[in-house]
């Protein structure tokens, strides 16, 4: 099996590579179109800021390539947000795989933004959460989130409910960092790799 981690200016993606190492899964880290197209699984990670990331994807043509992929694709964190239609973060038009707009958490007394740390997810309806206990805890770091929508397959709540995971056809996405979310995150990655 060939797993590709898409290479772009997405900050520190080392943690994703180490997580795959821990699972004993090989991977290629590349932005090469042929390598990506011929992969069995594609992971689209992301840490950083939406508009800079989108400009880079456009420059490399990845903004067209990613939505055209047919194999299972997993976007995480900012990767997930870039798969949505639009992000309020610097007014960014994104790839539009998921027809939903990413919004900043509203300033709310008693809540810090970013939402950072371990929070529980619920209402799972995706093969990626198979084998997880109810209310599994995963690690989040983000100030923007997609609201609950028709593609939501796991929900989390911080200030208000938001999409912890999205799924449409071959596209999967997680707002949290599977790679450092303990056994839960490891299970999700394993489920994705064995889809």
């Amino acid at each position: 099996m060939k797993t590709v981690i898409i290479k772009y200016n997405a900050g520190n993606v080392q943690s994703v590579m180490y997580a795959l190492d821990r699972l004993g899964a090989g991977y290629i880290y590349t932005d090469d179109e042929d390598e990506i197209r011929t992969a069995d699984k594609v992971i689209f990670p992301g840490v950083g800021e939406a508009s800079t990331a989108m400009s880079y994807l456009r420059e490399k043509g990845l903004d067209k390539l990613i939505p055209s992929l047919k194999q299972p694709v997993l976007g995480t964190c900012v990767g997930m947000q870039l798969m949505c239609r639009y992000s309020e973060e610097n007014n960014t038009t994104c790839m539009g795989i998921f027809d939903v707009d990413v919004q900043r958490f509203p300033a709310t007394p008693g809540y810090k933004v970013p939402h950072m740390g371990w929070n529980n997810i619920f209402d799972y309806t995706t093969p990626l959460t198979q084998g997880l206990p109810d209310d599994a805890y995963v690690y989040f770091v983000h100030s923007y989130a997609a609201p609950v929508c028709e593609y939501t397959v796991a929900t989390c709540e911080y200030i208000r409910p938001f999409s912890a995971m999205l799924h449409k056809d071959n596209f999967y996405a997680a707002q949290f960092h599977c790679e450092i979310s303990g056994h839960v995150g490891q299970q999700i990655l394993h489920n994705f790799l064995t889809l």
């Binding site: 943690s15 997580a19 190492d21 821990r22 690690y139 979310s181 995150g185």
Partner: peptide, 8 residues
């Protein structure tokens, strides 16, 4: 450590 643990 990174190869061993799965928490931040």
């Amino acid at each position: 450590v990174a190869h061993t643990i799965n928490i931040p």
